[in-house]
Each structure stands twice: as structure tokens, then as C-alpha cells.
Amino acid sequence: MNETYEFNDIWFYPIYFDYLLSFRLATILKFSESYGNITFDPCRPTKCNSNSTCRFVFNQNRTYCTCKSGFYSQHCQFYEPQCSLYCSPDTLCKIGNRGILTNVNHSLCIGPLDRFEPHCYLHHGECYSNSCLNNGTCHLIYDPNDQRLSICQGKKDFHGDKYQYEKESIRIHINRTDLSLVSVVQFCDINITTFELLVQYQQVFHEFPQMIYYNHDLEETLRLAILKTYNDVNDLNYFILYMLHSLNIKMFNITSIPEQYPQV
């Protein structure tokens, strides 16, 4: 795993209950309208000294001097020697950031994605030994049962623990032109006992679609594809794109002349 992240700007949000094994924070991160505007830089001229870096706080509309590793206080003028002894050399050592309940006398070590334990000395090599195929990227995950320590992510055309399987593809060319504001394509299975349609996957279009692509990793192809078109809330039309009698077909490329069912 070879990933590099650039630290740009920050948000400030309080996180409590620091005695828990992990923190959970769910919020919407909003960028300012000037973000990405090279002519606007709130950190110029910089107000921070050489021991810190100026950052813009998005949710408070102000600048903030973040201390470099080992430095602390309001103006980052003091250095804590404990950082060179307690934390791994390739971590960011922060003083006074351990919270108010546990290990308050120790520094907080912020390390790379593949480092763990309080000092960040232990190296998690899962993504080195379990490399992904087909240009997939390995990401470490947390599994309480330690059954799966990483996942592979990448192009939607592949799946599997190591991204080793290519997904089956369904291509539908629609030989019909209609006007619609919104169209919804639903791939469904059918409950053979109740004949209930079970929607497994759907796509939304802002007009009447001409081509539909669906890559899947299912053991059996879904029996039915339905197209629903909307001209307004009360004007809904149903079309059948395909209906399979055999589920052994996993990949196909068809031209469909959808049949409308006005009685639905």
C-alpha cells in the first residue's frame, strides 16, 4: 500500500467519551465558497511562526496555527522532549490532546494508516501481503472478529477479496424514443411463491435512456428488468425491458423494444 495524503485545511468539532476504543463522528463537512480560489489565501501573510503551519478553519471562518510535531502552547514556542521518546519518528506528536479521562500525561501519536498501538511503532502489513489484482487498491478495515483485515476497491468491473473476479455485464440498447423527465430502471427477482417483485438494483436517469449498463457479481442473473418513466407525479408509465426464463445466462447484450403496460 502506497498512499499519500495532503493536509490542507481543518474543521473543529468536539469529540467526547475519550475512554472508548474508537471515536464516531458523523457530520457534513462544508467548504467555503472561496475554497480552491488561488487568489484568496487567508493565511497570507502568515501569522504563524516557524514551529507551526497556518490552516483555515472552515466551520469557524478563521485561521489557526497548527503546531508541528512536538511543539505546543498557543504560539507553538515550547517543545516537549517526550515526543522523541514516546512516539514513532514518522508520527505527528501532539501535546495535551489525550482528552480529560485517560493517559493525560502521555502525548498523542498520530501515525500513517498502516501503523497502530499508542506509540505507532507496530506496522500493519496486511496490505503488503494481500495485494489487490486488476489495479485494485488495498484499504485496511476494522473487523471485530479479525476475519477480514482489508478490502480491495477500484473499478466497478471487478469484485472478490483480492479483486480477482470480473463482474458479469448486462448491456441493454433501447430501440424506442419517448419523452420523459425522469426514468427509473429496476432489475428485479421474483418470489416464486407470492410472485412479488424484489428490486435488487436500480438506476435513475434524467431522461428516457437509450443504453443501460449493469455489472453484477450475482450467482444468477435477475429475472426481470423494468423501466418506469415519469412526465410528472401523476403520469407514470411502465415498460418491460426483458424477462428471462433461464437464469444460467449471466452476461448478455441485447436490443430491447420495451413493451408498455398501461394497465399497471
Rank of each mutant, 00 (worst) to 15 (best):
I172Y: 04
N215W: 06
Y214E: 07
S22C: 07
L224W: 01
G111T: 03
L113A: 15
Q147R: 13
I95N: 02
E80Q: 12
I38T: 15
V184N: 10
N59H: 04
R55P: 00
I38N: 13
N215Q: 13
E219W: 05
I110C: 10
R223T: 08
I254F: 05
D178W: 03
C188K: 04
Y79M: 06
Y16Q: 10
E126P: 01
N135D: 13
S88N: 15
I249H: 11
R115L: 02
N231S: 11
L21A: 14
T177V: 13
G111M: 03
D178L: 14
I10C: 08
N49K: 11
Y230F: 15
P14C: 06
D217I: 00
S129Y: 09
N2K: 10
E33H: 09
K94S: 11
K68Q: 02
S183I: 00
Y128K: 11
Y13N: 02
E33T: 14
N237W: 01
I192R: 08
C48Q: 01
Y214W: 10
C93M: 07
H119D: 15
Y13S: 05
F12Q: 08
N37A: 09
F12Y: 08
A225V: 01
C48V: 02
C109T: 00
Y230C: 09
P112V: 01
L197I: 07
Y165V: 08
Q202L: 12
D178H: 07
L20A: 15
F40W: 04
S107M: 04
C138V: 00
Y128V: 10
S183C: 05
P118W: 07
Q60I: 00
Y230N: 06
Y230R: 09
D41H: 10
Q74W: 01
S50T: 14
L92F: 09
V199Y: 03
F208Y: 15
P42T: 08
G160T: 07
P258N: 12
M1D: 08
P81T: 09
R62Y: 00
Q203L: 15
Y79G: 06
L236G: 01
G99D: 00
C67P: 09
E80S: 15
T193S: 15
T39L: 13
R62P: 00
S129P: 00
N2Q: 10
N231T: 02
M243Y: 15
C76M: 07
Q164L: 03
N134M: 06
T194C: 06
H159A: 12
D114V: 05
Y213P: 00
F208N: 06
